[in-house]
Design a protein around this nucleic acid. Structure first.
Lengths: 207, 207
DNA sequence: TGTTATTTACACTGTACAGTATAATTAACG
DNA sequence: CGTTAATTATACTGTACAGTGTAAATAACA
């Protein structure tokens, strides 16, 4: 199958593949999984339906390609570096804002909804897929560990504290954004500040 | 249309209607909205398909009947009375446990997933439906107000505090339960305790 | 018991869509 | 250029399912 070892002449098909993937992303995001027919996807991608099937055996297969792209991006975008020179509030606020803008970005919002609706219809399937990616809370747990190391936070159980923080962010921002047309970032700021204040009050190291 | 005012003889059809509704609830919960065909629903309900259509004009219509039943029950089950004789921790813990057992109950878990998947596919539809019911946070806001009145909590902005609490419960319990096969209630207790401690540390009134 | 509203069985229509078949066309690579 | 892998247009198959039509059966009520 490898171009270098195969005796068969193979051409570069990555361009079409990209086009199909992008068309599928757009179609899924705008119409949802079921409504996005393979005909519609092919048309949006500017490609014949047969070509779609030449690249992806089934619709489900194509969807997995879309998911992979989406989740890999997500993973790359959820970084947080601990900075000992910066106030904890500042860093947490920046991080929470990043989460809010990420979920709010229109292109991702649509796909997040589709992912949610597909995953909740088949949670075992969801497990199988998401198991292939690192836990999205990992970078934050690293941050917490660094802050503790730096004697700024008193945390007995970092995974537990990470769950508390993510519960707040997801419960207050992520899920509401999905069920509305995104979040009004200005209106959400007082809530975000309150969450961060609550978190810090709990775990701040007493001097 | 009213039996008392109509000149047409009308019989009691509520039994069949109940049977259809219960069959639909079971079918939707077990198979999801799309997979639950009207034929399947009729069979589970022990009723002919034509009778289903005699009671509900369309599948969507039937689904609304199911939703109505579900959301009304939900509303009734989300009560919390403030008790000045009981510690805040106790009351919040009991409340949070009630939420956890409610989402965990197998019959409701399936329907909650279906509701989620339908609502997230059409958030404007979701708005129209849920707008007909009281905000699910209302009872808790009353509780907060009573606790403040009783000088136990220092809360400037009760709706904001309510959002903080519900964000924690939903982010930590409700959503995870939906995407797993429910929540392991024992394993969740430390997290629940931590959330409540965090909430109380933020809003407890200093003596 | 007779009337008739309601229910049933069953055949049917129309539509939407995943996936396939195939012959013709295009364009990348040597 | 010529070869041929990749792509295209188009027509097609099979299936699933919402919703309808109808005549016969059933059962609630007067």
């Amino acid at each position: 199958m490898d171009a270098a070892t195969s005796p068969v002449k193979r051409r570069d098909t990555s361009k079409k593949r990209e086009a199909i993937l992008n068309g599928a992303i757009q179609a899924f995001a705008e119409m949802g999984y079921d409504q996005a027919s393979m005909d519609a996807i092919a048309e949006i991608a500017g490609v014949s339906k047969r070509t779609v099937y030449n690249h992806f055996r089934t619709k489900e297969n194509l969807f997995q390609g879309v998911i992979a792209k989406f989740l890999e991006e997500q993973q790359a975008l959820k970084r947080i570096e601990y900075d000992p020179a910066r106030a904890l509030e500042d860093q947490l606020t920046a991080f929470a804002h990043a989460e809010m803008y990420l979920i709010n970005s229109p292109s991702r919002l649509g796909l997040s909804r589709v992912l949610t609706s597909v995953f909740i219809r088949d949670i075992d399937y969801a497990r199988r897929i998401t198991a292939q990616y690192a836990s999205p809370h990992e970078p934050f747990m690293q941050w917490l560990a660094a802050a503790r190391e730096d004697n700024k936070l008193a945390i007995d159980n970092p995974p537990l504290a990470a769950k508390v923080f993510y519960a707040m962010i997801e419960g207050a921002i992520t899920w509401p954004a999905l069920f509305q047309h995104g979040i009004d970032t200005e209106a959400a700021k007082p809530l975000l500040d309150e969450l961060i204040a609550t978190f810090i009050e709990r775990y701040r190291k007493e001097e």
